[in-house]
């Protein structure tokens, strides 16, 4: 254990919907500037875990810490926590009635009180950096899926979050558009962004992540160095999952 406090820490988190247990005691630690990849079949709990960390879902038991502070305590104001985290959704979830620029500046202006001129200037700068200059005035439905997802990532970055949670951000994209989004995330990693990345892109997880966690039926079944997990998985379930992934050509 290092002496520094991890940015995000998940301890024994459980979550059920009715009788269906989705998370059965998850432990996770994400250090500063680290990227942790969550892999596992659909329904293994990756998305639910991210939504629980961002307090969009109430957990049943356990704790989540952000910079050492318990955020899952009911007395902890959720809005304040969400302001410090960024979450990017599989289906982009851009605001369709707002332009690209308005999508990005909404949160900085409304929830952080940044003056419009300042918010717009930094939004334009961010959009430009991610190859979206000239699209500021467009509505989301005028953009390609890849562009929409890049706008969604810029929107999450605009509030300068402590950590970015990426929920299968390329799963809704046409194959030829996946690359542009992945290279953006790669760039964020190089800049030292702390990230939790739920993904089906194994090659990408292997390349970008500092640690890979294999989720199976609501538990972290195996975790470790990406090279080790992908070349010599210990658990039979991990081996089986990776074999299926190889068969579908994702690795």
């Amino acid at each position: 254990m290092s002496a520094t406090v991890p940015v995000l820490e998940v301890r024994g988190v459980t979550k059920s919907y009715g009788d269906r247990a989705v998370l059965r005691g998850i432990d996770l630690e994400v250090g500063e500037h680290c990227a942790v990849a969550l892999i596992g079949a659909s329904g293994s709990g990756k998305s639910t875990l991210l939504r629980c960390i961002d307090l969009l879902e109430e957990i049943d038991d356990g704790d989540v810490f952000l910079d050492g502070e318990v955020i899952t305590d009911p007395s902890c104001p959720a809005v304040g926590v969400r302001r410090r985290l960024g979450l990017v959704f599989q289906a982009f979830n851009l605001f369709p009635h707002l332009t690209v620029l308005q999508n990005v500046v909404l949160a900085p202006m409304r929830s952080h009180g940044v003056p419009r001129a300042e918010a717009e200037a930094s939004a334009r700068e961010l959009l430009g950096r991610f190859g979206l200059e000239g699209r500021e005035g467009d509505y989301p439905d005028r953009l390609s899926g890849g562009q929409q997802q890049r706008v969604a990532i810029v929107r999450a970055l605009a509030t300068r979050p402590r950590a970015l949670l990426l929920d299968e951000v390329t799963s809704a994209l046409d194959p030829e558009l996946v690359g542009e989004v992945l290279s953006l995330v790669r760039g964020l990693k190089e800049q030292g962004m702390t990230m939790v990345i739920a993904t089906h892109e194994m090659a990408f997880a292997r390349e970008v992540a500092d640690e890979v966690c294999f989720l199976h039926e609501g538990r972290v079944l195996e975790r470790g160095d990406p090279a080790r997990i992908f070349s010599a998985p210990e658990q039979p379930e991990t081996r089986q999952f990776l074999r299926r992934v190889v068969e579908t050509g994702r690795l």
Binding site: R51, D54, L56, A78, V79, R82, R83, L85, G86, L87, F89, A91, N93, L94, F95, L106, A107, R110, S111, H112, R155, A156, A158, T159
Partner: peptide
């Protein structure tokens, strides 16, 4: 999902409703 997105960027429930 629109409400979820609005909350995720840090808006309050009221702001999510309004904006």
């Amino acid at each position: 999902s629109q409400r979820a997105a609005a909350l995720a960027v840090g808006l309050s429930e009221t702001q999510a409703m309004r904006h």
